[in-house]
Computed example of a mutant assay.
Amino acid sequence: MTSDRILHDALIGRQGSRADLNTPVLVIDRDALDRNIATMAACATAAGVALRPHAKTHKSVDIARRQLEAGAVGVCCAKIGEAEVLADGGIAGILITSPVAAPAAVARLAKLAARAEGVMAVVDHPAVAERLNAALAAEDARLDMIIDIDPGIARTGVASAGSAVALARTIDALPHLAYCGVQYYCGSQQHIENYVERRAAIIERTDYLREVIAALAEAGFAPRIVTGSGTGTHRIDIELGVFTELQAGSYVFMDKQYLDCDLAGGEPPPFEATLAVDARVVSANHSGLVTIDAGFKALSTDGGVAVVQRGAPESAVFAFMGDEHAALVAPGIGDDLSPGDPVSLIVPHCDPTVNLYDHYHVVAGDTLVDIWPVSARGRSR
C-alpha cells in the first residue's frame, strides 16, 4: 500500500521537494496559514469577542492546535465524530454545532462530555434535550447547551422566539444540562459576493436575532454566549455587536467561493489562499488544451470549478473531464506545457475537498516541511 507517508516522508526538508510530490496532492502553505490564523485572532481580540473557529473546514488536530495557540477559546465541530477525534488529540473547548439527536450519537456525546474538557452542544428540540439528559445521567456527567436558532433556512434551529424560550425552560429543568446561550449561523448569506448586499442581508437577519435574545432575557434566560458568524460576515457581525464569539472557519484556507467575495468592503483581502491541490499535466496533444490528473476524485464539485494558482496561465479555464482528469483550456497552452509539468489549483470549496484526502502536505516555499493527517476525515457520524 502506497500511503502518503511512504511516498513522501523522504522528501521532508529537502530543498524544492514540493516539485517531487506524487499528484494529485493536498498542499498547505504553512507560513500563509499562520498569517491567516494570526489575522483572524487579532481581529477578534481587537473587537473584544472570543474566537471559536469551525474545525469542519480543516478536520485537523494540528491546525486546531495552532488556532488555540493564537488565542482561540476552542473550536467548533459539525459532527460528534469530528469532536471525538479532536478531543482525543487534546483539543479542549469543543462546540458541536449540529444537533445530536440519534440515540447512538446521544450516547456517544454523553461519554464525550464525561471525559473531555469544555464540551458544548447545540439543541433545537425539547425531546432531544430530555434524551441528552438521560444519557448524561447514565454517565454522571453534565453538558453545557446552546440553543440553535433557525436563521430562516429551515435546516436546523428553533423556529421562533417563543420556541427558544420554551426550550430554555426545558433545559433549565433538566439536572444534567446547563443552558449557556444561543447559536445563530447565517450560512446562506456568507457567500453574497457584494459587500453592501451582504451587509444589508445580515443586518436584517440580526434584527431577528435581537428579538429572540430579548424574549429570552425577558423570560430570565439572557444568553451568556451568542455564537455564530462566518468568514464571509465576520467583519459585519463584529460591527453589529451581537455575537460574543465567532465561528469563522474557512479563513484559514480560503477557496474560490470566498475569494470571489469582497470580504472587507473594498479594502485589500484580509486572508490569503493557503490551500491548493497540486496536479500534473498528463496529456498535451492539443494546442488549446492540456489534461491534468485531478478530476472529480480530487476536487469538490459543489462550489464551481478550480482556478489556476501557478504553473499555467491564470486565465486558463478549468473543466472536469471525469473521475481522474480535468482540462485546462487556453490559447496555446498545449504548446507551452508538457506531460509531467506541475500545476497548482485553488480549490472551489475547501471543506469537501479536504475530506477527499488523508493528509496535508505542508510546504514552506517550495520545500515540503511536514505531513499532517486530516485527522477527522470521514468522521461524519
Rank of each mutant, 00 (worst) to 15 (best):
N22P: 03
T2R: 13
E272M: 07
A92W: 06
G228C: 03
A138C: 12
D29Q: 11
S287I: 13
F253G: 00
I371D: 05
A107R: 14
P126Q: 10
I153V: 12
I333K: 02
Y185P: 07
T231S: 05
D341Q: 08
G162N: 10
G266I: 07
A364L: 06
A129E: 00
T274F: 02
L86A: 10
R142H: 12
P373W: 08
V362T: 00
T227Y: 11
A64Q: 10
S17I: 12
A215D: 03
G181A: 11
A284Y: 02
L136E: 03
T244Y: 08
A327E: 12
A248V: 02
K56A: 09
A121I: 04
V61D: 02
L21V: 09
C186N: 15
H286P: 05
L132A: 04
P223I: 09
T274N: 00
I63L: 14
Y184E: 00
R381S: 10
P352C: 00
V329E: 05
V317L: 15
C77S: 15
A127N: 15
L209C: 07
A273H: 08
L51V: 08
Y251R: 04
L109G: 00
G162F: 12
I37P: 03
H54V: 02
H54G: 04
A105F: 04
V226P: 01
E69F: 04
E69T: 13
A214N: 08
G334M: 08
P99L: 00
F271R: 03
L216H: 06
R379H: 10
L246V: 11
L132Q: 06
C77M: 06
V165R: 03
A41F: 08
I203A: 15
C261Y: 10
A284C: 04
T206E: 12
A168V: 01
V308S: 03
V282W: 00
